[in-house]
Design a binder for these strands. Structure first.
Lengths: 215, 215
DNA sequence: CAATATATTGACCAAACGGTCAAGTTTTGC
DNA sequence: GCAAAACTTGACCGTTTGGTCAATATATTG
């Protein structure tokens, strides 16, 4: 995941940062494959190469680890669509967003899975701040799409449904990779496979917005 | 869920059937909100109004309850699309399938959630028979869509991607209902809301197949 | 170098969990 | 009406888990 990439030695707090990173990385894998309740601190510790008591020295509780993982994940959700404006070309902005979301599904499928499970279970562990942030992000994006429609730049589609459609179709390739693998003869989708999916989704979604996929 | 709807009294095995039904119904709710590992036999028992030992008399183990729930859920997946043929009109068959899948998301969101979690975790608890059944169903449906394309009845889209698109977009409204509720001011989608989603998805998906939504 | 903060770790504990069992009660089949 | 089968249930048990703690080691700093 993100966390800290290369941690220099002998820098103030470097031990802490290095262990934080190791623990979060291990925790992401464990939570994604076992779920919150199925994950054990012991397994996170083993994957991180630390004794369990040491993990709980950095994160006071399993809940604490999970919250750190969630906030780490949310930083992945950032995209170029965050800064789209009513002046932009919707075809460019939307197709780029679709491809970015799909790329995250390909590169960080575990993050997508943890987020999906959190939503399926009712998002009870998601803090109110995070929820509020999601709402304001969503409303501002909706407003821009609505402006595009008013300006005659795209067809009159429900902006919320359009967003849900993009999320559903792109995240599906991370969350349901096991199903896709079963149906595709046990083979996981490779980079070219994702490229084809991106082409398909851009063509499909943009065309239903009355847009053409840009070069 | 399905199980047994009204169980007549004093019918051979009626006690067993009634309790089976109570337990499965309770288990579906618990598994959907807690996941497999988060669910406890105790909680299933309480929701079913039975002592824990009695639940384990009918289902030998927690695993046994879960398998029964999974197979109960899979019967919901049946749809009119199972019997579609190359002679059918793709516009009719596909739009009907989309609406049926969406109706299941609306009516049995818990079933969709359990299935989604099973896939996210890697489908390790899904039996090989069930997987084989999924594969053969999928391949036969792919073949029909391919025939439609060859017959010039619809545009040349990747049939597998089309299926994934339909599943992703329709199941999203069950699995991510918590997120949708957060973003929609805390309100759950009502029946009319689902109707609108169905209209939107049919128009979008069919149009990218070069089809028009039938009346 | 001394003293103070930070980090490491094995041992331990209470709670919760899945599952068993034996002792009863009720229902069924003849 | 009675024996056998099916059902019910409280009590119990071994295991696992999240979390604590005290003892020790290692860094940091003035």
């Amino acid at each position: 995941m993100l966390v800290q990439k290369s941690v220099k030695k002998n820098v103030k707090g470097s031990v802490r940062q290095a262990n934080y990173g190791k623990i979060i990385k291990a925790a992401v894998t464990v939570f994604a494959t076992k779920g919150y309740q199925g994950a054990t601190v012991q397994e996170v510790a083993e994957k991180a190469g630390l004794p369990k008591a040491n993990v709980l020295y950095y994160f006071k509780s399993k809940q604490g680890i999970y919250e750190a993982v969630l906030s780490d994940i949310l930083s992945l959700w950032n995209s170029s669509f965050d800064h789209a404006t009513a002046q932009d070309d919707p075809a460019v902005a939307l197709s780029r967003y679709i491809r970015e979301k799909l790329e995250i599904s390909r590169t960080y499928p575990e993050a997508s899975k943890i987020f999906a499970m959190e939503m399926i279970k009712g998002a009870e562990q998601l803090s109110d701040e995070i929820k509020a942030g999601m709402v304001s992000w969503f409303q501002s994006r909706i407003a821009i799409i609505q402006q595009w429609i008013q300006d005659g730049k795209m067809a009159n589609v429900d902006p919320a449904m359009l967003m849900f459609q993009i999320w559903a179709t792109t995240q599906h390739y991370a969350d349901f990779s096991a199903q896709i693998s079963i149906l595709k003869d046990g083979k996981m989708l490779n980079k070219k496979g994702f490229q084809d999916v991106g082409d398909y989704l851009c063509r499909s979604i943009l065309s239903s917005c009355g847009l053409k996929v840009p070069e």
